[in-house]
Write a protein that binds this DNA or RNA. Structure first.
Lengths: 103, 103
DNA sequence: CCAAGTGTTCGTTAGTTGACGAATACACGA
DNA sequence: TCGTGTATTCGTCAACTAACGAACACTTGG
């Protein structure tokens, strides 16, 4: 299986992270992952196609906001990297998530 | 003089705001405006053309992050709307600005 | 081995973005 | 009124984005 790319904490970039959060779909996915860590890609409530969703997960993963692990049956388990991101950019993600869940 | 559009506080949108912050140039402008409120558009240190800069100010203004007032000699005074944005999305902008100024 | 389930990758398309120079609009001072 | 200074608008261009379906890759159960 092809290894999935995850940026190191020291390579996180604020603009990249904000760009990843700036899309409503991705912000929703990110909020869901933080609410229910370990969700697989297929368990998100959405109207979008699989390929579109996959692309959004890729953006979240490559920005450093989530970690994707192999799960059973070729599935992907999605974990938040919120703590790691916070270590570089304190309070940014937690504040965004708080506002995102409300709105 | 054509009036400049400013969104009302109740119309602020989190994704729009994050998108405005996601560009490195705009984040720098926003940080500068917060550091030195009332700066005019021409006083920012940048290599970009006037028209490009004007477009960035427009994005910041229409997202609700700044307010632009008429100044002397057809200049624009740029003021942060940080407090208003905070009232809708607590801590988001302050956290972003703190990280932005460091990096 | 085969079929079903889960995601990714590829190619395409329409729309958006960021950049620029040139032209324009407006205010102010001489 | 005529420049000068300040900023916006317009038209253009290349690059990027989000969306889709089809095809592919991989795991697992029968």
């Amino acid at each position: 299986m092809k290894p999935l790319f995850h940026p190191r904490v020291e390579d996180l970039d604020l603009s990249t992270i904000l760009h990843a959060c700036a899309d409503p779909t991705r912000l929703r996915l990110l909020a869901d992952i933080n609410t229910e860590p370990g969700k697989t890609c297929g368990t998100f409530e959405t109207e979008l196609s699989k390929s579109t969703l996959s692309a959004h997960f890729k953006v979240l993963r490559e920005s450093g906001l989530i970690r994707q692990e192999l799960g059973p049956g070729n599935s992907r388990l999605n974990w938040p990297r919120t703590a790691e991101v916070q270590s570089r950019f304190p309070d940014v993600i937690s504040a965004i998530l708080k506002s995102a869940i409300v709105s």
